[in-house]
Amino acid sequence: MSAQAKHPYHMVNPSPWPAMGAFSALFLAIGAVFYFHEESFLGLPGAYKLLPGLSLIILTMLLWWRDVIKESVNEDVHTDEVSTGLRMGMVLFIASEVMFFVAFFWAFFHHSLGFSASTLQWPPAGIEVLDAWHLPFYNTVILLTSGVTVSRAHLYVEAGLNQKAAKWIWITAGLGAMFLALQVFEYGHAAFGLSDGIYPSTFYLATGFHGFHVFVGTTFLVVCAMRAQKNQFSPHKHIGFQSAAWYWHFVDVVWLFLFVWVYWLLGLPVRTF
């Protein structure tokens, strides 16, 4: 903090990453539309048209978050007040993510509970649903276990034992990876494709976005595990890890809803409207 500032807040230095991120998003969007409509874009084939924009966005994220970690660890600008702000920011971000999933659950319930005039039964005729008590159940167990392991890691962080915490964060991330592997396996063996009507539409988008969030959460945890190995968390201040843990619990809860409603209760038996 500069000498004259009497407030506890963080006056962030100018940064090129926001504008870079925004224009990368433009690049990605144009690439995406050209991919959808099979127009030529930088001579790239098919979905590769997404690659330039996407890589630039990922690069921006890396550079941006590297700065945030530096500001926390090296410049020590994350005062108690700034830390409170960062935690609030994370909670609000998760709240907005919850509302994103609300849209997909809305789509699911709209059809599966018979609000739609064009859905005559659920699951729709010709759809062979997955058995909830097979892979989906294993995945439920995996995610619930990972909720326990991440809490264990949290206890170690709060006790100042970063190395032990790192171990348990790695275990959590490993469980996340296992979940993803099983999910991919399940997709590969499902009897319906994405374009086979409303059931696969709701199923794949809801579970797919959830899977993507597991991927993001796992990545977040891996970064935290590495930071724990570098002893970057203190019992008093570990916003990065705390955010990753909150995010992980959020992903966990979304899965419970998916499991209970999409796979189990509204999976079988067939109900007609």
Binding site: S195, G197, I198
Partner: peptide, 15 residues
């Protein structure tokens, strides 16, 4: 090819 809003695939424009 999803059918959220397309009755031909069991979807619903009202959604």
């Amino acid at each position: 090819g999803t059918a959220f809003f397309d009755p031909r695939g069991g979807g619903d424009p009202l959604l």
